[in-house]
Write a protein that binds this DNA or RNA. Sequence first.
DNA 1: TACTTAATCTCGCTC
DNA 2: GAGCGAGGTTAAGTA
Lengths: 230, 230
Amino acid sequence: MRIVVADCSVDYAGRLSAHLPRAKRVLMLKSDGSVLVHSDGGSYKPLNWMSPPCALTTLELEDEQHDAGIVEAWQVVHAKTGDKLIVSLFEIMSDSSHELGVDPGLIKDGVEAHLQELLADQIELVGDGHQLVRREYMTAIGPVDILARDAAGASVAIEIKRRGGIDGVEQLTRYLELMNRDPALAPVQGVFAAQEIKPQARTLAEDRGIRCLVLDYDAMRGMEDHNTLF
Amino acid sequence: MRIVVADCSVDYAGRLSAHLPRAKRVLMLKSDGSVLVHSDGGSYKPLNWMSPPCALTTLELEDEQHDAGIVEAWQVVHAKTGDKLIVSLFEIMSDSSHELGVDPGLIKDGVEAHLQELLADQIELVGDGHQLVRREYMTAIGPVDILARDAAGASVAIEIKRRGGIDGVEQLTRYLELMNRDPALAPVQGVFAAQEIKPQARTLAEDRGIRCLVLDYDAMRGMEDHNTLF
DNA sequence: TACTTAATCTCGCTC
DNA sequence: GAGCGAGGTTAAGTA
């Protein structure tokens, strides 16, 4: 990993064209050839970058570049797409390299799969007397998150999202359309469950007779812990 | 901007929980308080991070942390959500600060908006005798990319995507459903235009009577240049 | 390997 | 400020 702090301008030509006017920035050159151009603010996204696999070469300076005050120029080319990033350096404030080694990587938990697990275990949240049939119930066009039966024994197809948007409603609608053609399942009631349901999605869902269910992740997790403890 | 290269472990607790085992990494501390944890590889996305607005404080070390070899510990807390990032430093290889100033920002062109512009200018690509009514034609549920009329004067609603998937077809279907209720427009023919149309999307579109149109961006741009030149 | 879906998405625009 | 769509999306999981 090489880190350069420099007054520079950057040009990108690939799926789009982009230009960064001259300013002081941090240039991160990773050992896989990738380059990140960061400013002192914004989010984790660099102003500009080149993803691996790619290769960096130092360009020969032409007279007019030299006259313009450029002291060094890099060309970073993507190995597959040919996308090109050109960094023109006017002044280098700092240039250092560090051997980091391979990173052991991130360990994370607490995502959408967990919501499905929790709701399967607490299926009564969908309605009194509901019973789980199975998770990831396969259909011809993909798996429905949860298939259940209500107190009367009627089928209930549940689509779970962390944030419920229109896409999720469309997805559930396609499943319902298909499942309602199966005499063994029909009629199938739809339930759209999410931690947060967007107004447009709720409107669309209710217009189609799909029930909306807002999930309280913390409460469900707390319930789970409680169940585990006793 | 402060850049620290250190042997460290990182813990994040917020919308999810995540942990980074001890390893050498680059820590970028931006002046807005945000922190990025980068390894020597991967993409532009950091292994872990905290977005602004947030604040960094140096924690008092407890005896057991000291015994474990930790020489410094930071706590970065998000100002609104309360998300927390804790960095435990075991050894600091490098620690430097640089004044960068405010970045002038990225200038970009050549995205989807451009495709819409090009197709509006070259509306005859949709079919002989077609005429542009307007771009971004507003409906109650959002703007249709292009509204045109065919040679016979019938309405044509065009949805443009760079990559055409099922989502885009669903979107256009919703527009068509709404527009066909308007006597001044009905009947409205749908055209799904994209640089690349996925097979599933094409099947769904054609099943619904929506015409598919594959756009050749380079040819359209070339045509545009040609028009400008002569 | 190709495709589908989620993301601590981010970013920009509109209402 | 909230909502919605696009992204050089990126990244992870699955068929």
